[in-house]
Design a protein around this nucleic acid. Sequence first.
DNA 1: ACTTTCCATTGATTTTTGTCAATGCCATTT
DNA 2: AAATGGCATTGACAAAAATCAATGGAAAGT
Lengths: 192, 192
Amino acid sequence: MYEIFFQTLRNKVPFTDEELAIVKTYLTPKKLRRKQYLLQEGDVCRFIAFVEKGALRSYSVDEKGAEHIMQFALEGWTISDLYSFLTSEPATYNIDALEDSELLLISKSSHEEMLKVLPKYETWMRIQITGAYIAMQRRITSIISLPLEERYAALISVYPEIVQRVPQHMIASYMGLTPETLSRVRKKMIRK
Amino acid sequence: MYEIFFQTLRNKVPFTDEELAIVKTYLTPKKLRRKQYLLQEGDVCRFIAFVEKGALRSYSVDEKGAEHIMQFALEGWTISDLYSFLTSEPATYNIDALEDSELLLISKSSHEEMLKVLPKYETWMRIQITGAYIAMQRRITSIISLPLEERYAALISVYPEIVQRVPQHMIASYMGLTPETLSRVRKKMIRK
DNA sequence: ACTTTCCATTGATTTTTGTCAATGCCATTT
DNA sequence: AAATGGCATTGACAAAAATCAATGGAAAGT
């Protein structure tokens, strides 16, 4: 249940077995069924969720009721409404499960304790967020500078697993497009 | 010359005067004239730049030679090609000065030393990047979920200084629009 | 002060994307 | 086996944004 998380930690920072045992005491395992909510807009986000198994998404809903996907999270990724988590303001994103999933939750108190007690946790956190920041920068660069076909091609090459496991209309939402437009882009690309 | 930087540090993490004196030894002041490059695509980015005075931008250039602005940095902000800085791969962004500017540069060795020697530097870095990550998330949400007028209104309300100090065609580039389209959006909004 | 480059705006037109509606398919469920 | 619901695709049309071209005006550099 903790394998992927520990592996992810060790991959970036040299945690000892003793330290991992301490980390373990701060985690809460949670199972989620497909379509179940982990977080609803308006509630305060009280955790960072690490995905051991399954797939989740975070998304906002506009005035017209349309969903706009902010992030997907597969095995080895973390997902949260970080702003809500850090400030205890109401969340602006929803999070739900796309598949039956197994999570490890880091509560706010766990997060704060680990920052105090385990310097390596802070290092891991810093590296983790830095990676997420860089990925987000790439996403924006892709949006503002690439034609649609290339954007979709880039998505496939960077996140092939997401494109495989997630329905296309959600990929479209993630890209800020309608499902029809994405379908037509794909058609064009197949011809080549 | 160091006032804004120290204030920014202290604002997030309780640095002592002694610690700030240590930090100071790791910084390199640099002045930049308007239009001068701080970084060119293809070079390795060897610093994180903190803006004490002035304004800079980072941007990529596509095959057709069009510029796409990734980020603006005014006083109190940092700017870099973080991926290039961390990996020593060639930079994909250019950085140049929009106004005569004064910077404090953190070299890679300074960065690494400070991470080792000053835990508070790591904490500051983590908080700083977390803030940048959250801002970026908002930018994406804005792009994929808001109509153009609201996106521009949001930009004005979040970054009024940028809109004032930066030419409109650069704002358009930052938003992923042509200057003509932004001009028309503004016209519509003025009528209200 | 003068010249030159840059910049915002506007109009006309084309291209791209969204909207609306319908169809057929596949995977589940009953 | 039949029915259901979710999903991708397609077509026709509308709306939004890009492109091309021209103008006037302000700002920067000399």
